[in-house]
Simulated assay, not measured.
Amino acid sequence: MSLLGLISDVHGDPIGLELAWAHLTVMGAGAIVCAGDLVGYGPSPDRAVAFLEGRQIPSVRGNHDRWALERGPGEPDEFGGGTPGEETLEALKRLESSLVLERGGMIVVVVHGSPRGDMEFIAPRTHPPYVLDSYLDTLGADAIVHGHTHRPMWYRSSRDRLVVNPGSIISAPVVATSRTFATLDTATRDVRFFDVESGNPVEVPAWPGSG
C-alpha cells in the first residue's frame, strides 16, 4: 500500500498515540514510522513504548530518549514526565539515530531533529530551501521525515523531493504541541496533516520557497 503514516514526539502520551494509530489504520496506512522522542514530558513512557513495539512501529532515537538513557534506571525526568522502566530503557537502547526505508520506490530517511543531530531545530530562518536541498542531496533521499519542533511542516523541492515534520502527538498540556500526525502517499508524493483527537484534516502551508 502506498500510504505511509508519519508520527513524532509521542512524549509518553499513549492516548494520543493510540488515537493517531487508530486514525491511520482506518485511513489505510500500510506502515507507520516515528521520528523520535518517545518519552519525556508525558506520564506514561512505558505504555507508549510498549504500544510502538507491540505494533512494530519503527522509530528513531530523539533527544529525550537519549537523555533518559543518560540518566539511567530509576532517575526522574527533569521535564516532569514519568520515569521509564527497565524494559522501556532497553527498547530505547535499540533505537538508532536515523532510519532508511524504501516505500513505493521512494527512499525515506527518518531522523529526529535534522540529519546533523537530534537537537537541531529545522526552522524557516535557519533552513531555507538550499539547506533542505543539501540534506536531500547528501542523503540521496526522496523524503526526509523529522520531528523535534512540535510544529508540522512540509517542503517540496523543485525535483519533487520532500522534507516533512508531522508535528507532535502529545496532547498533555505540559508542553507546546500541535497534536498532529501526517500521511505521505508514496505513489503521488502527496502530504497531508491531521488532528490527533478528531482525525480531521489540518491545513499546513508549504515551507517558504517550496517548489
Rank of each mutant, 00 (worst) to 15 (best):
H150S: 07
A182H: 12
M153E: 00
Y135N: 01
T180F: 02
T83S: 02
D46R: 11
H150C: 13
P124Q: 12
L132V: 10
V164C: 06
S198F: 05
H11G: 01
G42Y: 11
M119H: 13
L99V: 14
H11I: 12
G167C: 10
N200I: 03
D9Q: 07
R159C: 00
V60M: 06
S171K: 02
T183M: 07
D142E: 05
G74M: 08
T177I: 11
P14T: 14
P84Y: 09
P129S: 14
V163L: 13
P43K: 02
Y155G: 03
H150W: 01
T149G: 06
F193N: 08
S158P: 00
R116W: 03
D37R: 10
P124G: 13
G211M: 13
T88E: 05
N165V: 03
F121R: 10
P45A: 09
E90I: 00
T88G: 06
S98P: 01
R179I: 02
K93G: 03
G36H: 04
F193Y: 10
R55Y: 14
G104L: 09
E75S: 01
G104W: 08
S97E: 15
F121H: 15
T188Q: 12
T126Q: 11
V131R: 15
Y155S: 05
S157Y: 08
L132E: 10
P208T: 12
